[in-house]
Amino acid sequence: MIGRSALFIPASSPSMINASIAFRADTLIFDLEDAVSIGEKDAARDLLDGALGQIEKKNLFIRINPLSSAFWRADIELFLKSGSQGIVLPKATPGDVKSVSEIIKQSNREISVVPLIETARGVEEITDIIQCSPLVSGILFGAEDYCLSMGVKRTKEGREIAYARARLANAAHAYGIEAMDTPFTNADDAEGLNKDAVLAKSLGFSGKAAINPRQIDVINKTFSVEAAELEQALRIIRAMEEAEKSGKGVFSLDRQMIDAPIAQRARKLIKRAQIWGEMSC
């Protein structure tokens, strides 16, 4: 599970790797791709190989280089050796996801594949990308490269990515996986980040990627379950249990009819709150 926040850490930076243990992101994504120059890919892999054995944290992912590059096989070898939980696959296509899944499923451990959707074609092929491997547990949207592939200017308001966001969030929900929103690239604009995260949540994203540790608290707060929402979900489940005892399939609470979909949403919300430590039960 990726969670509410996923922070990219350059795999070439010892100081960032050392500090990462203290960051409160639900997931850390060690980046072997964009954050590492072509001539330093070997050094970054050596560094990450040494570091990952020493980091005691649950959700460690590695962003490998794209399958169109010369580096991805060595990245996968490192990934398999590392014991990390997941792999982030840039500029993912259905074929890429299939190829990588075939290789890593031989490791016989529970691994998540998170395709990074960052092209117009990737957005259009999202259902194939999700369906082509059972290892796909979530998708991550990359708006910068997506805009490049669309030939449009990236703006703070994000009108140019509205379609892609809605499509990806919808697809993720349709197949019961997580949808992570694109990073907000101005690390000094907390208000802008907050607005962007609220918008992403309203569209159905379950979390958001971060490029700076300063962004984590805002993202975690936005994507956490609100106290009032949680209380209402608990009331629904308690009322549903009472109704079931008396043999009712549908019942009302506060004059609102409660049926299976509403109960299911309440259960999901409670589960999410339990996972991210927002409730004690």
Partner: peptide
């Protein structure tokens, strides 16, 4: 720290 030294020597 140790892992970094070792990694740089390997590279």
């Amino acid at each position: 720290i140790d892992y970094c030294l070792r990694a740089r020597v390997q590279t």
